[in-house]
């Protein structure tokens, strides 16, 4: 048998400290509701699917070569660029990253048009612009594959802390390339914002991009 609550009971309850957590929760809800429409979580508080670049770093412009001619980072001002350094001989981490980014673009629907994926090959000897074009198109027809001389690749990679080194392989593999396996998200103003590890979850990257788009 439950006792029916009377107005008097409620009045008494207001003074009852046992209800303090309830009041705190109501206050919290009120703040959340009135806070809607504004940014609820600031960048420093938000959890990203990759490592947040502290104080957005402007990425110096660079130009490398695609099968259709030269491509510069500045060509994509106004878009969210995912910059990935890898090589096509790499059997799973590189294609895995591209496959994830293709899924991210698909998941975003129309918003996906605001992103551009660029793979820079650190293995220009095997990855000619033609090889790269065919490779990245397998994942998404909008993806770009570019490369160049060591100097050109370094000009693009060094500001982002990209490391790569050729390591002798077997007779069959010839050589392998050790490389930084992160995809960098560069904002429409050309600042590096997030560095994604190769195993960053797809839905996390989608959520991040939606968050960035909502900030605009």
């Amino acid at each position: 048998m439950k006792k029916r609550l009377t107005v008097n009971d409620l009045r008494l309850a207001i003074y009852d400290l046992r209800f303090a957590p309830v009041y705190a929760f109501i206050l919290f809800l009120a703040i959340m509701i009135t806070g809607c429409g504004q940014t609820a979580v600031s960048e420093s508080e938000r959890e990203f699917a990759g490592a947040l670049v502290n104080s957005p770093q402007p990425v110096p412009d660079f130009t490398l070569t695609s099968a259709d001619g030269p491509v510069s980072l500045s060509d994509f001002a106004g878009k969210y660029v995912f910059l990935y350094f890898g090589y096509t001989f790499c059997p799973d981490v590189c294609p895995g990253t591209l496959s994830n980014l293709a899924a991210v673009r698909q998941e975003l629907g129309e918003d996906g048009d605001n992103m551009q994926v660029i793979m820079i090959s650190v293995d220009p000897e095997r990855d000619t612009p033609e090889v790269l074009e065919k490779y990245v198109a397998h994942f998404d027809p909008t993806f770009l594959g570019i490369t160049g001389s060591k100097e050109e690749i370094d000009a693009a990679g060094e500001p982002l802390g990209i490391f790569y080194e050729i390591h002798e392989g077997s007779a069959a593999s010839g050589y392998l390339v050790d490389h930084t396996a992160r995809a960098f998200l560069i904002d429409p103003e050309g600042n590096a914002r997030v560095a994604y590890p190769h195993d960053a979850p797809r839905d996390g990257i989608v959520a991040d991009l939606k968050w960035f788009l909502a900030q605009e």
Partner: peptide, 17 residues
């Protein structure tokens, strides 16, 4: 050819051997 390979991260660099 088929080889057995391993991959690991060392100082944020992906290495395959």
């Amino acid at each position: 050819a088929i080889e057995l390979h391993n991959m690991f991260m060392e100082n944020d660099v992906m290495i395959m051997r």
